[in-house]
């Protein structure tokens, strides 16, 4: 009983009592699943019959899995299609909403942000109607303008852009709010000083705003990267990943492998592999940020 460590622990028993609910839940729903999933990567299992140890064969199968690579490719293409316009739009909106002369700020902000709180399944079904081939609003509008009809959801070439439009609509407000907070965090002193030195608006933007916004851009990029890889509801409801597998991203493919085909072992294997690469990519983005500020 004279052990000072035990005594110290006993004196701080409240600390351990207060953090233990979290750690109990985390052990059951975080840590154990993480290790179990790693183990599953090396077995074959459908959830019912006994597991079968297969060594590295899941990984070998992955290398030859065409749909897996298609889903990664689609993830990349969809990301490249929607992230740049979304970032530019969000930044533009944030700069405008941050201007002191702007009136009706709350109204504009609410209009641009509301998509973020809408259930994704609702968003996807409304877009299904708007994208309708014969009677959709968009094709009717295109017809009025002498274009179309466009095969929004029924062509392999159009499914990715159609998903991207939905994503821009859904996530611009979210990024705008983050960027707005970033802009408001920049001290006005910088701008005053630059104005005294005779810098015009564009120069102030280029030499002050953009460099100081870099951490926010980095955060938004990482969130968008992760969001695109693991997104599910959007494609699950709007296109079911089709036509063919033209809009199947990794999140949907993982879901199908897990809960449609019940290939628990193989699904864990690809989930682990992709999580590893997403983690490395996030580190890389953070690295670029650091090297840029030095």
């Amino acid at each position: 009983m004279n052990d000072p460590l035990l005594k110290r622990i006993w004196r701080h028993r409240h600390f351990y009592a207060f953090i233990s609910p979290f750690f109990v839940l985390f052990a059951v729903f975080g840590l154990y699943p993480l290790l179990f999933s790693l183990y599953l990567s090396f077995v074959q299992w459908d959830g019912l019959t006994p597991m079968q140890w297969v060594g590295l064969s899941n990984f070998r199968n992955m290398i030859h899995d065409e749909i897996f690579f298609t889903s990664l490719w689609n993830t990349l293409i969809i990301g490249l299609m929607y992230i740049p316009p979304m970032f530019i739009g969000a930044f533009l909106f944030a700069v405008l909403l941050n201007s002191s002369w702007l009136k009706l700020r709350g109204l504009f902000r609410a209009a641009l942000f509301l998509p973020v709180v809408t259930p994704m399944v609702v968003v996807a079904i409304v877009f299904t109607l708007l994208y309708g081939q014969e009677a959709g609003f968009l094709n009717w509008l295109a017809g009025k303008l002498g274009m179309g009809p466009f095969p929004w959801l029924v062509s392999e070439n159009w499914s990715k852009p159609s998903v991207s439009v939905l994503l821009v609509w859904r996530w611009t407000g979210y990024n705008m709010v983050l960027m707005l907070a970033g802009l408001q965090g920049i001290s006005t002193e910088y701008y005053e000083a630059a104005r005294i030195d005779g810098a015009n608006a564009l120069q102030r933007m280029w030499y002050i705003t953009l460099p100081l916004m870099r951490p926010v851009f980095v955060f938004c990029s990482i969130m968008s990267l992760i969001g695109t890889v693991y997104m599910f509801d959007e494609v699950f409801v709007l296109t079911q990943g089709g036509p063919g597998s033209s809009s199947t991203n990794f999140g949907l493919y993982l879901f199908n492998t897990s809960f449609t085909d019940f290939r628990f072992g193989y699904a864990s294997c690809i989930a682990y592999t992709v999580a590893f690469f997403v983690f490395m990519a996030s580190l890389l983005i953070l690295r670029i940020r650091r090297s840029g500020t030095e």
């Binding site: 460590l5 110290r8 622990i9 701080h12 409240h14 600390f15 351990y16 953090i19 979290f22 750690f23 985390f26 729903f29 975080g30 840590l31 154990y32 699943p33 993480l34 179990f36 999933s37 599953l40 992760i226 693991y230 999140g251 993982l254 897990s258 628990f264 699904a267 864990s268 989930a271 682990y272 992709v274 999580a275 997403v278 983690f279």
Partner: peptide, 28 residues
């Protein structure tokens, strides 16, 4: 409770768990 033994290690552990994507633990 800054003087509780192991506090910083436990907290570092909590931070590390933020890196786990939900997709990996879905099946388990």
């Amino acid at each position: 409770y800054p003087h509780a033994p192991g506090r910083d290690k436990l907290f570092a552990f909590v931070l590390a768990t933020m890196m786990i994507p939900g997709a990996v633990t879905l099946i388990p």
